[in-house]
Design a protein around this nucleic acid. Structure first.
Lengths: 171, 171
DNA sequence: CCGATTGTTCAAAAAAGATTGAACTTTACG
DNA sequence: CGTAAAGTTCAATCTTTTTTGAACAATCGG
């Protein structure tokens, strides 16, 4: 349970804090669905509701998470392009703001999380093809090759759809 | 680690057992990516490689999983339409075979796993809209409404794309 | 370059999630 | 019906993933 509600620094009314909390919770649910840890949802969610960019310390203070969590969470979000650094002229700490274009969010996720898995599966399948060809029994070979071909078709279809999918998410 | 390899009943050569194992492992990886437990991958994978329908007992014996796991796994796979019962005239036990059409597999997953989450998020967002309208400060209301509208757009886009996505996965 | 502030790392602890297995229910056949 | 095989349930256990926090490293203004 996050506790934006107990956040002192924002000096927000209880109603405002409650609404922020509920938006953050929507993101927590959202990231769970795509298999990312809760803290990523909290961090992205708070950046999303916030009017101004936030620093790592802001996140630690307002979400009540540890420095370690914040550091790792920000790195992961940066890696999939879900947030970006805001270059601040003055002070020495880094501030972050969220990427809010659905298309780009999806693109980053697909590029960093989906495609690597797909490609690794695909190459395991290719290796498997070689092992199947070594098999002595021709009937057995035929049966396994049927399966392999179907899997290969699955990989190809999925791979082909990804760019299309991203495109459909509009600008 | 599954151990099809140690399966005695199949009387398969080591090479054949190895290939079956590797195909099952591909499915184990696959279900992890979409956030389902390993045992679902094992069960679906074994049904996929198998030439003939298998019973719950076959799965317990060949995968070395418990009766409980097999029962729950089969139920979950049935719920998303990834497998179906094969009505057998004779004996009293139920046999299963896999759904192998990518389009239907995806359809079941979308219908049972994705849409419920999306719709629940959508209705939470609607409730949030009401809470935002209660806010005293008009500036605060405007800021939160911007966020709410963007989220609403995300939900609508995603929802609209799902049927299209399934369609693209061909017959 | 000093020292304070900011940020990272990673082993250990906590939390979340999956699996087991024994008790229970259901089914189908004689 | 009675009974044995088949299937389900769920609290306890095991496994995996996530979070923490203290030690370490990098950075910057003066």
């Amino acid at each position: 349970m996050t506790d934006l509600a107990r956040d002192q620094r924002a000096a927000a009314t209880p109603a405002v804090a409650g609404i922020e909390q509920r938006i953050v919770d929507l993101f927590v649910d959202g990231v769970r669905v795509i298999g990312l840890p809760k803290s990523l949802g909290e961090i992205y969610g708070l950046l999303f509701v916030s009017c101004t960019p936030l620093s790592q310390d802001d996140l630690v203070a307002r979400l009540g998470i540890s420095k370690g969590s914040a550091s790792q969470g920000l790195r992961a979000l940066r890696a999939i392009g879900a947030i970006r650094e805001v270059r601040n002229d003055g002070g020495r700490r880094t501030y972050y703001e969220p990427e809010i274009h659905l298309k780009r969010l999806a693109g980053g996720f697909i590029r960093e999380q989906v495609i690597p898995h797909l490609d690794s599966g695909r190459s395991k399948l290719d290796a498997l093809g070689k092992a199947i060809d070594q098999l002595a029994d021709p009937a057995q070979r035929r049966l396994f090759n049927e399966r392999r071909e179907r899997l290969d078709y699955w990989f190809r279809s999925t791979r082909k759809i990804l760019p299309l999918l991203q495109h459909l998410l509009g600008e």
